[in-house]
Design a protein around this nucleic acid. Structure first.
Length: 189
DNA sequence: CTTTCGATGATCT
DNA sequence: GATCATCGAAAGG
């Protein structure tokens, strides 16, 4: 009997990262299905929360089911969802969506036509959804955010995280199997 | 196809 | 001064 998918924001980051695959994420009605995530935790040298609360990462130590938005490389915004409990510094980076809602709005914001690269990467997701620092620390179950668990179980694949130089071997990247909307392919079988 | 590199700003050492 | 949870354009094969 298949387990009905659910989102446990009180779970640890790898578990929530896995559960979020296939969920529908919208901001002001624009977005799509989450097809790629990564887990980060305070006991993780690659995490912004490693070393404890600081001004930038303050939201990671706030309540679960809220956002943490940060600026990446001085140019992009990236969206995380906080989990576990306040003070644990655990969260999930949203790395890619399969666009389903508001395609034209996303094309305008991104200035690209190809559906495949609209939301294929954390900076691209934030740009397509119009996410900035103003969205930092907001609850994901209230406007402008909407988050819906998958209606049915999905097949999830795992791999190592992208773009980090510490704890590079942790298999904390999760993806929807065979999705063409991920930022980079997962190693097959 | 692959690799390299500049942009751009906050954070860390 | 170096690094960074990135992207896209350019250069090379």
């Amino acid at each position: 009997m298949p387990r009905r998918p659910a989102l446990h924001f009180d779970a640890d980051a790898p578990q929530l990262a896995r559960e979020l695959i296939g969920a529908l994420l919208l901001v002001d009605g624009v977005g799509g299905l989450i097809v790629e995530t990564e887990a980060y935790d305070m006991d993780d040298p690659a995490s912004h929360s490693h070393g404890g609360p600081r001004p930038r990462n303050r939201s990671m130590f706030g309540p679960p089911a809220h956002t943490y938005v940060y600026r990446s490389y001085g140019i992009h915004w990236c969206l995380n969802l906080v989990c576990r409990e306040a003070g644990h510094g655990a969260g999930v980076l949203i790395r890619a969506l399969q666009p389903t809602h508001g395609l034209e709005r996303m094309r305008q914001r991104r200035a690209v036509q190809d559906e495949r690269v609209l939301c294929a990467g954390p900076g691209r997701v934030a740009q397509a959804l119009g996410i900035t620092l103003e969205h930092d620390g907001l609850p994901v179950d209230q406007p402008p955010f909407e988050l819906h668990a998958p209606d049915q179980p999905v097949e999830v694949v795992t791999g190592v995280r992208i773009g980090i130089s510490k704890a590079v071997d942790r298999p904390w990247r999760f993806g929807l199997a065979d999705s063409r909307f991920v930022s980079r392919p997962f190693a097959s079988a």
